[in-house]
Design a protein around this nucleic acid. Sequence first.
DNA 1: CGCCTTTGACCGGCGC
DNA 2: GCGCCGGTCAAAGGCG
Length: 365
Amino acid sequence: MADGWDLHAVVSGCTTPASSSATVTVNCQTNNVEDPLPDLASLTFANDDNTPFYYPGFGDNSDFECEGLEEIYRSFNFLKPRPNNPCTSSISPTQQEAQSLPPPPPQTMVQVQQLITPQTIKNSRAGSSLALPATVRSRRRKNQQTKLVRQMSHEELLGDSWAWRKYGQKPIKGSPYPRNYYRCSTSKGCGARKQVEKSPSDPDIYVVSYSGEHTHPRPTHRNSLAGTTRAKFSSRPTAAGASSEPPSSAGTVANPPCSSSSPVSASSLSPSTPLIEGESSAAPPENSLTDAIEILDDDEDDEMWETECDEVVLIPNTVMSEDILKGFEEVRRASSGSTRFQTRDNSLSPWNFSAAAAGGGGGGC
DNA sequence: CGCCTTTGACCGGCGC
DNA sequence: GCGCCGGTCAAAGGCG
């Protein structure tokens, strides 16, 4: 999908009126930011609740023009409420400049369609098809699904404290990488879901889509270690064997393509990441992606830039063990050189991201 | 034993 | 109406 991977998603009806229809655009500026430090500097990392991250440009409802998106982000624990701060008050000069500039090129953006209808709400609230008999599966209309789409780095994918379970993987037409599907496994009946796929335009970036709502508090630790470490290398071809990614451990492990979509298995993380909120929030990733967010009215595409909410959102890296970091290094070395790769213990390979993917961005709303 | 990943099949939405 | 495509299910097998 490369440059054209516009993702149509619907922001879960967490807080948006059922009659609303909007598009959320996440503009990943990461690759365009020469110096991410200013962005990081504008961040504050409090830890007084379960939302360890604070993102500039979000928080103050009175000034925040993208309230809907803010809520979405909040619901996903991407944001932390802040006392007061207008959209522009905390952004760096670089970001301000970006705001004053015309919309970035399409290839740097992810457009998320938000078409919330009563049916959408109904479906999402219903909790998902899981509760339905196999013969009465609830399949929401694709365009009506509410999603929050973000682009993340490997590190960011690692920093998700939610527990995710992979339930599917599909090759996506037009994309060399498969899309992986995860649902929250922290609590039964939790409707939070997550999709992770690798950006064709930048193998180091992952496109993560969140949908649904968490029906439980953010876990302080991952509750399951079982089946998280898969040391064996599977030669089994994946449906999307098109992946050009380095065979990740996981990849190799189970699906290279998969790895492609998500570098680290949440599960693989589980055992080694205690998820200390404070700690995680205090250490922004060097490669944090900087995203500009825009709320767009789907019915008024011509006015897509009208809201001018290109707020920069930084998703700081959370917890990453040394092993994982080392694993990344190994993966990168391997990917740049040989075609065959194996991590020291297989289980920590950044490419083994099944759940990690899940881990990616911090859970659905 | 419980939870995980993998993966083919199934199903429904959507475009033509 | 048909076929493509994406999302989900569920069986099988693995790991701690």
